[in-house]
Computed example of a mutant assay.
Amino acid sequence: MSDLAILYEHPDWFRPLFAGLDRRGIAYRAIHADGLIVDPADPAPPAPVVLNRIAMSSFLRAPEHPIFFAQAVMAQWQAAGARVVNGADVLAIDASKARQLALIAGLGLAIPDTRVVHRAADLAAAAAGLRFPIVVKANIGGSGAGIVRYDTPAELAVAVGDGTVPDSIDRVLLVQEHVPVRGGAITRIETLGGRYLYAIDVDGGGGFDLCPADICLAAPGKAAVTVTRADPAPDLIAAAERIAQAAGLDVGGIEVMIDDRDGTARFYDINALSNFVADPLGVLGWDPHERLIDWLADRIAEVRR
């Protein structure tokens, strides 16, 4: 049996990770979600350590996406004794912007003013107490998908009537104030083992697709995204670590923006799938994949004891 199994869906995102594991001589099994058949009565996980690399944006690439399937599989493998990295509980939070915001707010941290509904018919009523412009967001999104801005209540009402508002694969929608971001860039704070790893500022030029990885930046038709190294204030780093630890996040990013209206730092996204930044040596001066592999090697050593 391999020391490590990696469940993934995207055909290109994890090549740097696989190459790094190969260089280090760490035995692993790469398992593509498509074609995976699981016996619920099978007591054996595929490896002592399992790394979940299923992206919420997978529903954009295939209607038969593995988001909910992966939650069941990760829960089964964890119950069978595997050390699952970003397991079923983390996947459940990753797959719900509503749960993410409730977790963050429960820690006493600021979020964008938001309302959650399960019917498009309730969007206008939910937006009534918010400042326009607002955005309607799919509860499960990815790479900016399922987010539309509405500048007036009348514009939102027309979209509801026309049936053109966003939809979510779980039928949960968020209505959220559109926060004017100070300086135009959000900050993504990456964590590993619940601790700060690095941070980047991402400026999408007003767009919603802020994925900073190589494959994302090279996507056809994608608006220009500017990525620079960031050095967040200690209080922001501490807040991101609290969020990661409360979510049980082993590896992933926490996104925050500074509200230009009042200077408030508003946390708004917990992302359990981090592809890390494009050109890490140029942006950071080091490669986060090596830190991740070190951390995985430690987890493998722990389960062998």
Rank of each mutant, 00 (worst) to 15 (best):
D167H: 13
K137Y: 11
A154R: 13
G146V: 14
D167C: 08
V148W: 02
G194L: 10
H178N: 11
A159H: 07
G183W: 05
G129R: 01
H178K: 06
N139Q: 00
D122L: 13
T187I: 14
T187D: 10
R195M: 07
A127H: 05
V136L: 07
A124S: 11
T187H: 09
H178S: 13
L192G: 02
G194P: 09
V158A: 14
S168Y: 12
I134T: 10
V172D: 13
R182D: 15
R131Q: 11
G163R: 02
G194A: 09
A138H: 03
V172R: 15
P180S: 02
F132G: 01
T152C: 01
H178G: 05
G183F: 05
E155G: 09
L156K: 13
V175Q: 13
A185E: 03
A154H: 11
T152H: 00
P166M: 11
V136E: 08
P180K: 06
G184Y: 00
R131N: 07
A128P: 09
A121H: 04
A145M: 09
V172A: 14
L130G: 03
H178W: 14
G146I: 13
T152W: 01
A145E: 10
T187C: 15
V165G: 09
G146F: 15
S143I: 02
G161A: 07
L174A: 07
A125E: 14
A126C: 13
V158C: 09
V179M: 08
L123Y: 06
I186E: 14
A157K: 12
G146E: 15
I147V: 10
T164D: 01
H118C: 08
D122M: 11
V160L: 01
D167Q: 11
G184I: 01
A124Y: 00
V172S: 14
V148C: 06
V160P: 05
A120N: 07
G193A: 05
G146K: 10
I186F: 03
A138T: 02
T164E: 01
L156C: 13
G144A: 03
V165S: 08
P180A: 04
D170E: 05
L174I: 12
R119Y: 03
L156H: 13
T191E: 05
A185G: 05
R188Y: 14
G161S: 04
P153K: 12
G193P: 12
V181H: 08
I134S: 09
Y150H: 08
G129N: 02
D162Q: 00
A125Q: 11
P133N: 08
L174C: 08
A124D: 08
D170M: 04
G194E: 13
P153C: 14
G193W: 10
G161Y: 06
A128Y: 14
G141F: 06
G161W: 07
P166W: 11
L123R: 11
S168G: 10
R119V: 00
L123C: 07
G141M: 07
H178T: 03
K137S: 06
T187W: 04
D167R: 15
K137N: 06
R119W: 03
A157N: 14
G161P: 02
V158H: 12
A159Y: 09
I189A: 06
V165E: 05
A120T: 11
A128R: 15
A125V: 05
D151N: 04
L123P: 08
G163T: 00
P133R: 09
S143L: 10
L130E: 04
R131Y: 04
A128H: 15
D151Y: 01
D122V: 12
T152A: 01
V160H: 02
R149C: 06
F132M: 01
